[in-house]
């Protein structure tokens, strides 16, 4: 038997109606909101950059990057930190260069020269996680007219800027003008950073694998990814040579295993052929080396142990052979591979 309670007070009735009214209002709101929802409309904060937030968040300040600042320099703006997800907010389309090379973090800050109110300097300190990554972005952007410096093994200056590698850091110090008066504050800033930032020296031992004869000074570089347009070719060291008045390039990349090196050499040769290269049968001085003519230049690809290596952009086969023998001998001599 089911029984119904007849004692329902007016208070209970009023409470029930109030709850039902609230539920109806909430339900109506949900329906309206759902119909207006647009996933492409970002929250207001997201319409502007994340960097705007970055600049307000605990800045690294001068203390973290340059403490203490050299005399005569004072912070002009607060420091900013950029990480992988928002690096492009600071350097736009160049972010890919750093990201593909192992970028970890950027600290940047502007300083003013207290003796010259119109002069300011911005420091970009890229933490690239290790010295090889730092060297990679350093070498990729090296200016041809840069004057080498001795502040670190990889450093140079241009009329308005200093660029150097210090341990795992790639550093750019850029002044607002090109004049004699910017030289001292830039040098002081660089020296102060180097002195106050403990890091292991970036020793790029791979540089020893390039033969010295006819090597163009300061031409050794490291391509982190997509070397020569081939996406499988990464971590490639390159060097420019000048033979008989013409330029050509030598390169190598150490792979994990001997087989990996062989496979990469073969796939790179195929890549060249697929893009119009002609594989040429020729008596080559290195066993299993391959010669390809492409765009009126010659490339020789070979393997030595786990090294995949070669020369490219040679205008004659003889030039290519001459350099490739030197490179092969040098790798054999220095690498210690059997």
């Amino acid at each position: 038997m089911i029984r119904e309670n007849k004692h329902i007070s007016s208070r209970q009735t009023f409470s029930s109606l109030a709850i039902l009214t609230i539920l109806i209002i909430i339900g109506t709101g949900v329906i309206i909101a759902q119909y207006r929802y647009n996933p492409a409309l970002l929250p207001k904060d997201a319409l502007l950059s994340t960097a705007a937030k970055t600049s307000r968040s605990s800045p690294p300040s001068a203390e973290k990057s340059f403490l203490p600042l050299p005399q005569g320099l004072a912070p002009l703006t607060v420091g900013e930190i950029f990480e992988t997800q928002n690096l492009s907010d600071k350097i736009n389309g160049k972010a890919e260069l750093y990201l593909s090379a192992g970028f970890a973090r950027l600290v940047s800050q502007r300083f003013k020269d207290e003796r010259a109110s119109d002069l300011w300097i911005e420091a970009f300190i890229y933490d690239m996680a290790n010295g090889h990554n730092a060297f990679s972005v350093f070498s990729a952007q090296r200016r041809d007219d840069g004057i080498p410096l001795d502040i670190t093994p990889h450093s140079y200056r241009t009329p308005n800027a200093l660029f150097f590698v210090h341990g795992s850091y790639y550093v750019e110090i850029i002044a607002s003008e090109a004049s004699e008066r910017v030289v001292q504050p830039m040098n002081l800033l660089a020296a102060r950073f180097i002195r106050n930032t403990r890091t292991e020296t970036a020793a790029i031992n791979e540089m020893e694998l390039f033969p010295q004869q006819d090597l163009v000074a300061d031409s050794i570089g490291l391509i982190s990814s997509d070397a020569f347009g081939y996406e499988s070719l990464d971590k490639v060291y390159t060097a420019e040579y000048e033979l008989d008045g013409t330029g050509l390039m030598a390169y190598f990349s150490r792979r994990l295993t001997v087989d990996d090196a062989k496979k990469l050499a073969g796939s790179y040769r195929n890549f060249l052929v697929n893009f119009g290269g002609q594989s040429i049968e020729s008596q080559l001085p290195i066993k299993n080396a391959q010669l390809v003519e492409i765009l009126d230049t010659y490339e020789i690809i070979f393997c030595y142990g786990a090294y995949m290596a070669g020369v490219r952009e040679a205008v004659t086969i003889d030039q290519a052979k001459k350099l490739v023998i030197r490179l092969y001998d040098r790798i054999k001599e220095v690498s210690g591979e059997p």
Binding site: I91, N92, G93, K94, Q141, R143, D144, D145, G146, T158, P159, N160, A161, F163, E172, I174, A178
Partner: peptide
């Protein structure tokens, strides 16, 4: 000519 879009040096 080089190192765009930021540049950074007159050398660019």
């Amino acid at each position: 000519m080089t190192n765009g879009p930021t540049g950074g040096s007159l050398s660019d």
